[in-house]
């Protein structure tokens, strides 16, 4: 399965892609994935859930975004970190604030982050959001809180399965 996935890029999960073609990576690490974007009703509950973790009503602290694919009739696009292997965002971080997570994805050490924004630019998925208040990136923690509130099962946590 791994061979089907272009390496080193984040994949925008939208209606044109079937997730099963894009499994890759190593051990029992988990990540958020769009299970079936056609089931997404655009309720934004995932976005609200993500900010709620830090005591906010809204989504300016959210690491997941849902928007229409250019008009609601075209369906929705779910933008969230795909937990890449060898992530480009970490590679461009000048201070080592973003480091690779074992199995894919990144971990942010905020105290090292200088807010240069290179990581957000390097993510062609646009899955690194920006906290304007603190001038820091908003990076998915793969905690699954968003998926817990997706009652239509459009997104969910999946194990990042290792190659046999």
């Amino acid at each position: 399965m791994l061979s089907q996935c272009p390496r080193n890029i984040f994949i925008k999960i939208d209606a044109n892609m079937s997730l099963s073609n894009y499994y890759w990576a190593t051990d029992m690490t988990k990540k958020i994935a769009a299970l079936d974007v056609n089931k997404c009703i655009g309720c934004m509950e995932c976005m609200f859930a993500c900010s709620r973790r830090v005591g906010r009503g809204g989504f300016d602290k959210s690491a997941i975004r849902v928007r229409s694919a250019g008009g609601i009739e075209r369906g929705f696009v779910i933008v969230v970190c795909r937990a890449c292997e060898n992530p480009p965002c970490a590679r461009v971080c000048p201070t080592g604030a973003l480091r690779e997570r074992k199995g894919g994805g990144v971990i942010l050490s905020e105290d090292k982050c200088i807010g240069c924004g290179f990581c957000a630019q390097a993510c062609i998925m646009g899955a690194i959001f920006w906290d304007g208040e603190r001038n820091k990136p908003i990076v998915c923690k793969y905690c699954g809180e968003c998926a817990d509130y997706c009652v239509h099962n459009a997104i969910g946590m999946v194990e990042v399965k290792g190659e046999a």
Binding site: I41, G42, C43, M44, E45, F48, I72, Y149, V151, H152
Partner: peptide, 17 residues
């Protein structure tokens, strides 16, 4: 019926297209 969508922050999705 082609799609069901919802208002922001409502899990119901009553809007039928």
């Amino acid at each position: 019926l082609s799609k069901r969508v919802s208002c922001a922050h409502c899990p119901v999705g009553c809007i039928h297209l």
